[in-house]
Amino acid sequence: MPPPVRRIAVDRDPRVAPPRPSANGVATGAVALPLKTARAPAAVVRERMSLDAVWLAYGENWVVRDVSLPVRQGEVLGMIGASGSGKTTLLRALNRLTEITEGAARAGRIALDGQDIHELEVNDLRRRVTMVFQQPNPFPMSIFDNVAYALTEHPERGSRRRRRSGAMRDAVASALQRAGLWDEVANDVDRSALRLSGGQQQRLCIARALAANPEVMLLDEPCSALDPISTAAIEELIVELRESIAIVIVTHNLQQAFRVADHVAFMHLGELVEYGPSEEVFNHPRQQRTRDYVSGAFG
Protein backbone atom coordinates (compact mmCIF):
# COMPACT_ATOMS: atom_id res chain seq x y z
CA MET A 1 0.00 0.00 0.00
CA PRO A 2 1.57 3.32 -0.97
CA PRO A 3 1.62 5.88 1.82
CA PRO A 4 -1.27 8.35 1.81
CA VAL A 5 -0.79 11.46 -0.21
CA ARG A 6 -0.39 14.50 1.94
CA ARG A 7 -1.15 17.86 0.53
CA ILE A 8 1.13 20.60 1.59
CA ALA A 9 -0.84 23.74 2.16
CA VAL A 10 0.53 27.17 1.60
CA ASP A 11 -0.64 29.91 3.86
CA ARG A 12 -1.28 33.05 2.02
CA ASP A 13 0.86 35.64 3.76
CA PRO A 14 -1.67 38.23 4.88
CA ARG A 15 0.93 40.97 4.63
CA VAL A 16 1.33 40.63 0.89
CA ALA A 17 -1.30 42.64 -0.91
CA PRO A 18 -3.08 40.87 -3.73
CA PRO A 19 -2.28 42.27 -7.17
CA ARG A 20 -4.27 45.41 -7.88
CA PRO A 21 -6.06 45.99 -11.11
CA SER A 22 -3.58 48.14 -12.88
CA ALA A 23 -3.79 51.86 -12.50
CA ASN A 24 -1.48 52.57 -15.41
CA GLY A 25 -2.95 50.63 -18.22
CA VAL A 26 -0.84 47.48 -18.20
CA ALA A 27 -2.82 44.32 -18.92
CA THR A 28 -4.12 42.62 -15.78
CA GLY A 29 -2.16 39.69 -14.51
CA ALA A 30 1.03 41.45 -15.46
CA VAL A 31 3.84 42.31 -13.11
CA ALA A 32 2.79 45.41 -11.23
CA LEU A 33 5.48 47.97 -11.83
CA PRO A 34 6.06 50.39 -8.98
CA LEU A 35 5.03 53.92 -9.55
CA LYS A 36 8.09 55.77 -10.67
CA THR A 37 9.07 58.61 -8.42
CA ALA A 38 8.92 61.77 -10.42
CA ARG A 39 12.41 62.58 -11.58
CA ALA A 40 13.30 65.77 -13.33
CA PRO A 41 15.01 65.20 -16.64
CA ALA A 42 18.60 66.35 -16.78
CA ALA A 43 19.37 69.96 -17.47
CA VAL A 44 21.17 69.41 -20.73
CA VAL A 45 20.50 66.53 -23.02
CA ARG A 46 22.65 66.16 -26.06
CA GLU A 47 23.46 63.38 -28.37
CA ARG A 48 26.89 61.77 -27.92
CA MET A 49 26.77 58.59 -29.92
CA SER A 50 24.61 57.48 -32.76
CA LEU A 51 24.10 54.03 -34.20
CA ASP A 52 23.08 53.87 -37.83
CA ALA A 53 21.81 50.66 -39.38
CA VAL A 54 24.24 48.61 -37.39
CA TRP A 55 24.65 44.92 -38.16
CA LEU A 56 26.90 42.64 -36.07
CA ALA A 57 27.86 39.05 -36.60
CA TYR A 58 29.99 36.36 -35.03
CA GLY A 59 31.23 34.28 -37.89
CA GLU A 60 28.26 33.74 -40.16
CA ASN A 61 25.73 34.27 -37.45
CA TRP A 62 24.09 37.72 -37.52
CA VAL A 63 23.47 38.69 -33.93
CA VAL A 64 22.38 42.30 -34.38
CA ARG A 65 20.31 43.34 -37.36
CA ASP A 66 19.80 46.87 -38.60
CA VAL A 67 19.71 48.76 -35.34
CA SER A 68 19.63 52.54 -35.18
CA LEU A 69 19.71 54.33 -31.84
CA PRO A 70 20.91 57.57 -30.31
CA VAL A 71 22.89 57.69 -27.08
CA ARG A 72 22.53 60.95 -25.24
CA GLN A 73 24.34 62.56 -22.39
CA GLY A 74 21.94 63.57 -19.66
CA GLU A 75 19.88 60.45 -19.97
CA VAL A 76 20.16 56.76 -19.31
CA LEU A 77 19.48 54.44 -22.21
CA GLY A 78 18.23 51.08 -21.01
CA MET A 79 18.45 48.07 -23.29
CA ILE A 80 16.14 45.23 -22.48
CA GLY A 81 15.36 41.96 -24.14
CA ALA A 82 15.54 38.24 -23.66
CA SER A 83 18.80 36.31 -23.71
CA GLY A 84 20.28 36.12 -27.14
CA SER A 85 18.59 39.30 -28.29
CA GLY A 86 21.93 40.83 -29.15
CA LYS A 87 21.82 43.64 -26.60
CA THR A 88 25.15 42.74 -24.99
CA THR A 89 26.80 42.42 -28.37
CA LEU A 90 25.51 45.81 -29.36
CA LEU A 91 26.81 47.28 -26.14
CA ARG A 92 30.23 45.82 -26.69
CA ALA A 93 30.29 47.17 -30.21
CA LEU A 94 30.00 50.68 -28.85
CA ASN A 95 33.56 50.56 -27.58
CA ARG A 96 34.79 48.07 -30.15
CA LEU A 97 35.18 45.34 -27.61
CA THR A 98 33.69 42.96 -30.14
CA GLU A 99 37.01 43.15 -31.94
CA ILE A 100 38.82 41.03 -29.39
CA THR A 101 36.77 38.09 -30.55
CA GLU A 102 38.06 36.39 -33.65
CA GLY A 103 35.70 36.38 -36.56
CA ALA A 104 33.42 39.21 -35.48
CA ALA A 105 31.99 41.21 -38.37
CA ARG A 106 30.06 44.43 -38.62
CA ALA A 107 28.29 46.77 -40.97
CA GLY A 108 26.71 50.16 -40.47
CA ARG A 109 28.01 53.21 -38.71
CA ILE A 110 28.58 53.98 -35.08
CA ALA A 111 29.63 57.52 -34.37
CA LEU A 112 30.95 59.29 -31.30
CA ASP A 113 30.37 63.05 -31.47
CA GLY A 114 29.91 62.68 -35.17
CA GLN A 115 33.10 60.71 -35.79
CA ASP A 116 32.99 57.12 -36.92
CA ILE A 117 34.44 55.13 -34.06
CA HIS A 118 36.31 52.85 -36.40
CA GLU A 119 38.35 55.76 -37.57
CA LEU A 120 39.40 56.65 -34.05
CA GLU A 121 42.35 54.92 -32.43
CA VAL A 122 40.85 52.07 -30.53
CA ASN A 123 42.43 52.77 -27.16
CA ASP A 124 41.49 56.42 -27.46
CA LEU A 125 37.93 55.39 -28.05
CA ARG A 126 37.89 53.04 -25.11
CA ARG A 127 39.08 55.75 -22.80
CA ARG A 128 36.19 57.92 -23.82
CA VAL A 129 33.68 55.11 -23.84
CA THR A 130 34.29 52.86 -20.81
CA MET A 131 32.61 49.69 -19.73
CA VAL A 132 31.60 48.01 -16.50
CA PHE A 133 31.02 44.29 -16.66
CA GLN A 134 28.52 41.93 -15.18
CA GLN A 135 30.98 40.21 -12.88
CA PRO A 136 33.09 42.70 -10.93
CA ASN A 137 36.65 42.28 -12.13
CA PRO A 138 39.01 44.34 -9.98
CA PHE A 139 42.64 43.73 -10.82
CA PRO A 140 44.85 41.91 -8.31
CA MET A 141 46.26 45.16 -6.97
CA SER A 142 45.43 47.61 -4.24
CA ILE A 143 42.30 49.73 -4.39
CA PHE A 144 44.35 52.79 -5.15
CA ASP A 145 46.20 51.09 -7.98
CA ASN A 146 42.97 49.82 -9.45
CA VAL A 147 41.39 53.24 -9.66
CA ALA A 148 44.62 54.88 -10.73
CA TYR A 149 45.14 52.24 -13.41
CA ALA A 150 43.36 54.09 -16.14
CA LEU A 151 45.13 57.27 -15.23
CA THR A 152 48.64 55.85 -15.21
CA GLU A 153 48.13 54.14 -18.50
CA HIS A 154 46.99 57.15 -20.48
CA PRO A 155 50.25 58.78 -21.28
CA GLU A 156 49.14 61.24 -23.88
CA ARG A 157 47.35 63.46 -21.42
CA GLY A 158 50.54 65.21 -20.50
CA SER A 159 53.37 63.07 -19.28
CA ARG A 160 52.58 59.83 -17.54
CA ARG A 161 51.40 60.92 -14.17
CA ARG A 162 53.47 59.68 -11.32
CA ARG A 163 51.77 57.28 -9.02
CA ARG A 164 51.34 58.56 -5.53
CA SER A 165 51.64 62.18 -6.60
CA GLY A 166 49.20 64.64 -5.11
CA ALA A 167 47.33 65.06 -8.35
CA MET A 168 46.93 61.33 -8.65
CA ARG A 169 45.68 60.93 -5.14
CA ASP A 170 43.12 63.66 -5.70
CA ALA A 171 41.93 62.09 -8.89
CA VAL A 172 41.55 58.70 -7.22
CA ALA A 173 39.72 60.19 -4.26
CA SER A 174 37.30 62.07 -6.48
CA ALA A 175 36.58 58.98 -8.57
CA LEU A 176 35.92 56.95 -5.45
CA GLN A 177 33.64 59.68 -4.16
CA ARG A 178 31.66 59.78 -7.36
CA ALA A 179 31.27 56.06 -7.16
CA GLY A 180 30.09 56.27 -3.60
CA LEU A 181 32.87 54.10 -2.27
CA TRP A 182 35.09 56.70 -0.67
CA ASP A 183 33.55 56.58 2.77
CA GLU A 184 34.06 52.86 3.03
CA VAL A 185 37.65 52.64 1.89
CA ALA A 186 39.19 56.01 2.63
CA ASN A 187 41.08 54.74 5.63
CA ASP A 188 42.96 52.11 3.70
CA VAL A 189 43.21 52.41 -0.03
CA ASP A 190 46.26 50.18 -0.17
CA ARG A 191 44.33 47.12 0.76
CA SER A 192 44.02 44.47 -1.93
CA ALA A 193 40.96 45.11 -4.02
CA LEU A 194 40.09 41.44 -3.99
CA ARG A 195 39.16 41.65 -0.34
CA LEU A 196 36.18 43.91 -0.91
CA SER A 197 32.66 42.59 -0.97
CA GLY A 198 30.85 42.05 -4.25
CA GLY A 199 28.95 45.30 -4.17
CA GLN A 200 32.06 47.22 -3.19
CA GLN A 201 34.03 45.59 -5.96
CA GLN A 202 31.47 46.61 -8.52
CA ARG A 203 31.52 50.17 -7.25
CA LEU A 204 35.29 50.01 -7.45
CA CYS A 205 35.00 48.99 -11.08
CA ILE A 206 32.72 51.94 -11.65
CA ALA A 207 35.21 54.23 -9.92
CA ARG A 208 37.92 52.79 -12.09
CA ALA A 209 35.88 53.52 -15.17
CA LEU A 210 35.15 57.05 -13.95
CA ALA A 211 38.73 57.88 -13.12
CA ALA A 212 39.63 58.91 -16.64
CA ASN A 213 36.55 61.08 -17.11
CA PRO A 214 34.82 59.14 -19.82
CA GLU A 215 32.18 60.62 -22.02
CA VAL A 216 30.06 57.53 -22.30
CA MET A 217 29.71 54.70 -19.82
CA LEU A 218 28.47 51.26 -20.81
CA LEU A 219 27.09 48.99 -18.12
CA ASP A 220 26.52 45.33 -18.85
CA GLU A 221 24.05 44.00 -16.27
CA PRO A 222 26.12 45.57 -13.50
CA CYS A 223 23.87 44.50 -10.66
CA SER A 224 22.96 40.99 -11.63
CA ALA A 225 25.57 39.49 -9.31
CA LEU A 226 24.81 41.79 -6.38
CA ASP A 227 22.50 41.94 -3.41
CA PRO A 228 19.56 44.40 -3.35
CA ILE A 229 21.25 46.96 -1.15
CA SER A 230 24.31 47.22 -3.38
CA THR A 231 21.99 47.26 -6.36
CA ALA A 232 20.08 50.21 -4.95
CA ALA A 233 23.32 52.06 -4.26
CA ILE A 234 24.52 51.54 -7.79
CA GLU A 235 21.23 52.53 -9.33
CA GLU A 236 21.32 55.78 -7.43
CA LEU A 237 24.83 56.30 -8.66
CA ILE A 238 23.81 55.75 -12.24
CA VAL A 239 21.08 58.32 -12.03
CA GLU A 240 23.50 60.83 -10.56
CA LEU A 241 26.09 60.24 -13.22
CA ARG A 242 23.81 60.72 -16.17
CA GLU A 243 24.20 64.47 -15.98
CA SER A 244 27.81 64.39 -17.00
CA ILE A 245 28.09 61.08 -18.79
CA ALA A 246 25.96 59.35 -21.37
CA ILE A 247 24.95 56.03 -19.88
CA VAL A 248 23.85 52.86 -21.59
CA ILE A 249 22.74 50.01 -19.37
CA VAL A 250 21.85 46.52 -20.44
CA THR A 251 19.65 44.75 -18.00
CA HIS A 252 17.56 41.67 -17.63
CA ASN A 253 15.70 43.14 -14.77
CA LEU A 254 12.64 44.96 -16.03
CA GLN A 255 12.02 46.75 -12.79
CA GLN A 256 15.55 48.04 -12.79
CA ALA A 257 15.13 49.31 -16.33
CA PHE A 258 11.96 51.01 -15.30
CA ARG A 259 13.61 52.60 -12.28
CA VAL A 260 16.76 53.77 -13.91
CA ALA A 261 16.32 54.34 -17.63
CA ASP A 262 14.97 57.42 -19.33
CA HIS A 263 14.79 55.87 -22.77
CA VAL A 264 14.39 52.18 -23.34
CA ALA A 265 15.27 50.07 -26.35
CA PHE A 266 13.70 46.63 -26.56
CA MET A 267 15.55 44.12 -28.68
CA HIS A 268 14.44 40.73 -29.77
CA LEU A 269 16.48 38.22 -31.76
CA GLY A 270 18.83 40.92 -32.92
CA GLU A 271 16.27 43.41 -34.08
CA LEU A 272 15.27 46.65 -32.42
CA VAL A 273 11.60 46.14 -31.80
CA GLU A 274 10.79 49.33 -29.98
CA TYR A 275 12.55 52.41 -28.76
CA GLY A 276 11.13 55.28 -26.80
CA PRO A 277 10.85 56.99 -23.42
CA SER A 278 10.55 54.40 -20.70
CA GLU A 279 7.08 55.47 -19.63
CA GLU A 280 5.82 54.76 -23.10
CA VAL A 281 7.59 51.49 -23.68
CA PHE A 282 6.48 50.02 -20.39
CA ASN A 283 3.02 51.46 -20.09
CA HIS A 284 1.91 51.97 -23.66
CA PRO A 285 4.01 49.73 -25.83
CA ARG A 286 3.17 49.95 -29.49
CA GLN A 287 4.40 46.53 -30.56
CA GLN A 288 2.76 43.32 -29.49
CA ARG A 289 6.10 41.70 -28.83
CA THR A 290 7.07 44.50 -26.49
CA ARG A 291 3.81 44.13 -24.67
CA ASP A 292 4.40 40.42 -24.30
CA TYR A 293 7.91 40.83 -23.00
CA VAL A 294 7.11 43.61 -20.60
CA SER A 295 4.17 41.74 -19.19
CA GLY A 296 6.28 38.72 -18.59
CA ALA A 297 4.74 36.47 -21.20
CA PHE A 298 8.24 35.42 -22.19
CA GLY A 299 11.76 36.28 -21.28
Partner: peptide, 14 residues
Amino acid sequence: PLAPPTPVARSARE
Protein backbone atom coordinates in the same frame (compact mmCIF):
# COMPACT_ATOMS: atom_id res chain seq x y z
CA PRO B 1 13.37 38.98 -42.58
CA LEU B 2 16.02 41.52 -43.39
CA ALA B 3 18.92 40.71 -45.67
CA PRO B 4 22.44 41.28 -44.31
CA PRO B 5 24.27 44.10 -46.02
CA THR B 6 27.06 43.34 -48.45
CA PRO B 7 29.89 45.65 -47.35
CA VAL B 8 30.99 43.87 -44.19
CA ALA B 9 34.08 44.67 -42.15
CA ARG B 10 35.82 41.88 -40.26
CA SER B 11 37.46 42.62 -36.95
CA ALA B 12 41.23 42.94 -36.99
CA ARG B 13 43.76 42.61 -34.23
CA GLU B 14 44.65 45.79 -32.47
